[in-house]
Design a protein around this nucleic acid. Structure first.
Length: 794
DNA sequence: GATCCATTTGTTTTT
DNA sequence: CAAATGGATC
């Protein structure tokens, strides 16, 4: 696309027409009904709450949709309803999701409800794709051309490294990675360089964090580039500084829908709030109990304070769970009840009790993998589909053991969320070539491939090119072209540059008449890139060549090179069409939104799950997020949820003993079954993990059965009988209490006289406060000492 | 400019 | 224990 201004940003750029009303609306609805046949029935089969959520079209609405309560169904039906009743045209609905997968699914499901009309929903997409669309349209207001490129993380880091070295900052002490992380964080919080609080940048590069951020932004503009954060941040700035632009969108978006609202960060929130200032028909769907991306900037607060932000908001709770059997749901609900600051939902099972959640201990991670694999074989032999089985792990290193085992046993498996296709080295290299052909000024892409394959163009040459390019304000490729004609370089690099630039000139010319797939093949061959991998005798070289072929094949579905490149930068996942029967192996994070008949949950050990780092870095909030992760894991299961923990696990190559996760203690007895009295208990002591780090040898003295029994008795006065006697950790109250105390430093504490509610003991009054421990006089029980996080204010 | 060894550093991940 | 960086060497 030669002239970027010719890109049709709005599918219907005619001036806004008066909205169809009265007869027109009814006629329109009639048309749709006639076209789709089934359209009139879309409301059937919804339960009363779902139906209310669909039909409450006007005004702000928060739908609290617990796991498995038909959230996507509500969203899609709501869109169908708005369309079918003629309240808005497809192009007047803004519907945002986080992932491309969710967007795709929503599009498909709306289409199946109302027919092809959904194809014309130009504003259904991810935050980032919609942000891109807006930014391209108003690029000039952000000092960009509408053809700007979108940087991936690799480019971002490379750019930051350049800035750091230009500023003479020791990259060893202040790695580009952490600067990138900080900038990302600021962008997530909606902060431009000037808004960064002084204290924030201080911890980075001797207080130069803020400057560096500003420099980075400057460089982005000159490169005509934007990173992921800018795709949201720049529209926010444009909306704020140009009310007329914002108003255009107010007129356009009559209805707004947001999926997974609990995952929004501050920037996304601001973006939404600006847009929702117009027609206040904003519908957010989410589940505070499934917020697991806090570490990435998501603010559970956004969902917790929805009613405050949007006065008059209606809140509808979806609590009927159609997914899991009662035992699974009971276990999950009880677990998550240990979290504070929830909006609170009670998931109600719709089906039968089903099987209890099982908890199995094993000696080490190998045994754990073996018993899970055996179990899977059994299920499979009995005719169960492997597709209905998933193993959900906390950290990806846990996957290896399962993979090994599956390979041995010949069980087919797939790993979800491994290294993504577009993130592979060979794919990024190939894309860099194409980016250069597509836009001669894509300096970052050029830098990536100047010397890949090796052409003898190293640091020295590239630096010279950069100096020249910067001083004359021309792109690197052009600089290369011009310098190749001078005697600046020695003959060898000069020749290499000449060949390269001539190649690019030829390719760019060819791109005008050639089909883009053929062009890609030509570029990759003539540049010597494919040859490079053919020469490579390492094991994965042939796989990489295969990937390159796959890349070219996947380009087929696109109009042109430009369209394909845009897709790649925003859509990092590739549709894996494999429909064979395989066990799914993935992280808990990747599992959100999915469901399986049988779910295996290995690795429930202190330190791994909840993850130590989460506890260290985010304290109580971290613990609660881990707990939500456990909740997400359990609620993926329809029929069977099976939890495992091992007493020994190899971490960083060293065997370490581990204790069962505290989450196991938080499972209710009546929904849980301990399948084996694990060797784990007789070998591992109580209260060990916290002490053995300080006094490694003392720990072993605690390993005698007698000591353990003593500890178990000591523990028995507290709380309910624990699941299967998992009363590890002698005096867990104190130990846990201190642990929590450390992390709760700034959590709101209780005051004497406050009325509180405790899950087990009922209502009571606080009579003493000591740190995070409370003495509470319960109405229906004695006075007990409890941890503040176990009670709620009334 | 390229290659080899030593040192480091190990969650979760979309766009 | 391994991968992935980075620095020192050829």
């Amino acid at each position: 696309m030669a002239d970027p201004n010719a890109v049709p940003f709005f599918d219907d750029d005619e001036p806004p027409t008066p909205r169809p009303s009265g007869i027109a609306a009814r006629a329109m609805a009639g048309v749709m009904q006639a076209r789709t046949g089934a359209a009139g029935n879309y409301l059937e089969g919804l339960n009363p709450e779902q139906r209310e959520a669909v039909e409450t079209t006007e005004g702000p609405l928060l739908v609290l949709a617990g796991a498995g309560t038909g959230k996507t169904r509500v969203l899609t039906t709501r869109i169908a309803h708005i369309l079918a009743t003629g309240r808005a045209r497809p192009s007047e609905i803004l519907a945002v999701t986080f992932t491309n997968k969710a967007a795709r699914e929503m599009k498909n499901r709306v289409a199946s409800l109302v027919g092809d009309v959904a194809e014309g929903m130009p504003w259904l997409g991810t935050f980032h794709s919609i942000g891109t669309k807006i930014l391209r349209r108003h690029a000039e207001l952000a000092e960009l051309k509408s053809s700007f490129t979108i940087l991936d993380t690799d480019d971002q880091i490379r750019l930051l490294k350049q800035i750091l070295s230009a500023e003479n900052i020791d990259e060893k002490r202040w790695p580009a990675r952490s600067l990138a992380w900080a900038i990302d964080g600021w962008k997530n919080r909606g902060l431009a360089p000037k808004d960064v609080p002084p204290g924030d940048g201080a911890a980075i590069a001797n207080g130069r964090g803020k400057d560096l951020y500003a420099l980075y932004q400057e460089r982005l503009k000159t490169l005509n580039a934007s990173d992921f954060g800018d795709l949201l941040l720049e529209p926010i700035r444009i909306f704020r500084e140009h009310p007329d632009v914002l108003e255009q969108y107010h007129r356009r978006f009559r209805y707004m829908l947001v999926d997974e609202y609990q995952d929004t960060n501050v920037a996304q929130y601001l973006w939404l709030r600006l847009l929702a200032q117009g027609p206040r028909n904003l519908c957010c769907v989410g589940d505070d109990d499934q917020s697991i991306y806090g570490w990435r900037g998501a603010e559970v607060d956004n969902i917790l304070r929805f009613e405050k932000d949007f006065p008059g908001a209606k809140v509808i709770r979806l609590e009927r769970n159609y997914r899991s059997d009662a035992h699974i749901l009971g276990a999950a609900s009880h677990l998550i009840a240990h979290n504070e600051g929830r909006l609170g939902k009670t998931l109600r099972p719709q089906g039968e009790d089903g099987e209890k959640v099982t908890v199995t201990g094993s000696w080490d991670s190998g045994e754990e993998a073996r018993s899970i694999a055996d179990e899977i074989e059994t299920v499979h032999r009995k005719g169960g589909q492997l597709n209905d089985i998933a193993i959900l792990v906390r950290a990806s290193f846990q996957m290896r053991e399962f993979e090994d085992r599956f390979v041995n046993l010949g069980i087919d498996y797939r790993v979800v969320g491994g290294p993504r296709f577009y993130e592979r080295q060979e794919i990024r290299d190939a894309l860099a070539y194409l980016r250069c052909v597509n836009s001669a000024s894509d300096d970052l892409a050029f830098e990536r491939i100047v010397n890949v394959p090796k052409r003898g163009l190293g640091d020295v040459t590239v630096q010279a090119l950069q100096r020249f390019a910067r001083s004359t304000r021309i792109p690197l490729l052009q600089a290369a072209q011009e310098m190749a004609d001078t005697s600046e370089f020695k003959p060898k690099p000069r020749e290499a540059l000449k060949t390269l630039t001539q190649n690019f000139a030829r390719w760019t010319k060819a791109s005008e008449e050639m089909k883009h797939t053929e062009l890609a093949e030509m570029v990759l061959d003539e540049s010597g890139y494919t040859e490079m991998w053919r020469q490579d005798r390492s094991a994965d070289a042939s796989g990489r060549l295969e990937n390159l072929k796959e890349l070219v094949r996947s380009m087929d579905g696109f109009e042109n090179l430009q369209g394909f490149l845009e897709h790649v930068s925003l859509v990092m996942d590739t549709e894996s069409g494999a429909n064979d029967d395989k066990v799914t192996l993935m992280t808990l994070h990747a599992a959100k939104g999915l469901e399986y008949d049988v779910v295996f949950l290995p690795g429930w050990e202190e330190g791994l799950f909840p993850h130590q780092r989460s506890l260290d870095e985010s304290g109580r909030a971290g613990l609660e997020e881990e707990r939500r992760l456990a909740y997400v894991g359990l609620t993926r299961a329809k029929k069977r949820a099976k939890i495992y923990f091992a007493s020994n696990r190899r971490i960083h190559g060293m065997w370490q003993s581990s204790l069962p996760s505290r989450f196991l203690d938080e499972l209710p007895n009546k929904h849980v079954e301990v399948t084996e009295a694990p060797a784990a208990f007789s070998n591992r002591g109580f209260g060990e993990s916290r002490f053995d780090r300080l006094e490694p040898f003392q720990a072993s003295t605690y390993n005698t059965p007698g000591w353990q029994r003593a500890q178990a008795r000591k523990d028995s006065g507290f709380a309910e009988p624990r699941a299967g006697g998992f009363n590890r950790r002698g005096g867990p109250v104190v130990i846990e209490g201190e642990l929590v105390a450390k992390s709760t430093a700034n959590a709101a504490s209780y005051v004497v006289g406050e009325r509180v509610f405790h899950d087990k003991f009922g209502y009571g009054e606080v009579i003493e406060v000591e740190g995070n421990k409370l003495m509470v006089a319960f109405e229906k029980a004695d006075t007990k000492r409890v941890i503040d996080s176990f009670v709620k204010r009334v």
